[in-house]
């Protein structure tokens, strides 16, 4: 018997977790979809419309909530001294358990909630096209949501690690840790800027921003809310370097969090 990875075992544990999925998380997903439906229905009563941008923002917000809560809802008991025993004693390797966790939280959950909300949006659009200006199934909307989802996956990996690290109030504690980390990085930047000199930093930023064209296309401003500033920011010389650093950081953080989760599943004492 292969003790590291066996495809049949991996499929079996993934199938088991999919079977249990809607019992553990179905209510939350349906509730979120209900909230989105209310969000779409509300303007009907006041006679307004819902713009494409606000719908995309709302879908992304809902997706973010579902993705962040997913680890604690689906795997919250894994490190519990009593409730986690059935999971840890299951004759499946740690790698298979971690990969299945990834598949369920990162891929399956994201797909279910995004697809669900988009289908709901489309159905409402087909029923009352006059109140929802455009369909969201456009290449541009999909691209924007895709980028947002990638960044959400990075954040989710942090919450997956937090779920394994903390025994209770997992989401709250992980958010606090995230805030702590942001403050720490902020302080570090302040320290670096102090060494370099605030004036020099200010001049550098001004110089970089001066490359941005003042003739901005109105359709692009409209989408600033969901961070589609790439077209405009491309003019900045260091933009490409910044993006490369960001993608590397995302990859490192995600990989680090999932590796940490693997280690914690493997070494947790009960």
């Amino acid at each position: 018997m292969n003790n590291i990875f066996n495809f049949k075992r991996f499929c079996a544990i993934t199938a088991k977790e999919i079977r249990e999925y809607f019992r553990n998380y179905g209510t939350s997903i349906i509730s979120v979809m209900g909230i989105y439906l209310l969000f779409l229905a509300f303007p009907l009563f006041i006679g307004g419309t819902v713009s494409e941008l606000s719908r995309i923002n709302m879908i992304m917000f809902m997706t973010a909530v579902i993705m962040i809560i997913a680890p604690s809802k689906l795997y919250g008991t894994v490190n519990h001294y009593r409730k986690g025993l059935n999971y840890v004693l299951l004759p499946v390797s740690t790698l298979e358990k971690t990969l299945s966790m990834f598949l369920i939280t990162a891929v399956y959950t994201t797909f279910i909630i995004t697809a669900g909300l988009l289908i709901l949006d489309t159905v409402v659009h087909l029923i009352i096209p006059s109140r929802l200006n455009e369909m969201l199934f456009t290449a541009h909307s999909m691209e924007l949501m895709g980028i947002e989802i990638i960044s959400l996956l990075v954040i989710q990996s942090w919450f997956v690690l937090g779920n394994m690290l903390f025994r209770n109030q997992k989401v709250a504690k992980t958010i606090l840790c995230l805030l702590g980390l942001v403050i720490l990085i902020g302080l570090l930047l302040v320290f670096v800027f102090r060494i370099v000199g605030y004036e020099k930093v200010g001049l550098f930023i001004e110089e970089q921003l001066s490359y941005i064209s003042l003739n901005i296309d109105g359709s692009k401003i409209r989408l600033f809310g969901i961070a589609d500033s790439r077209e405009i920011l491309k003019a900045i010389p260091i933009y490409k370097t910044m993006m490369t650093i960001q993608y590397i950081l995302w990859a490192v953080v995600s990989l680090g969090c999932w590796t940490g989760t693997y280690r914690l599943i493997k070494t947790r004492k009960y």
Binding site: N3, P91, S93
Partner: peptide
Amino acid sequence: KRQPSFLADIYY
């Protein structure tokens, strides 16, 4: 080490 071969033959 909680290897699957071990876990398949023990229950607590």
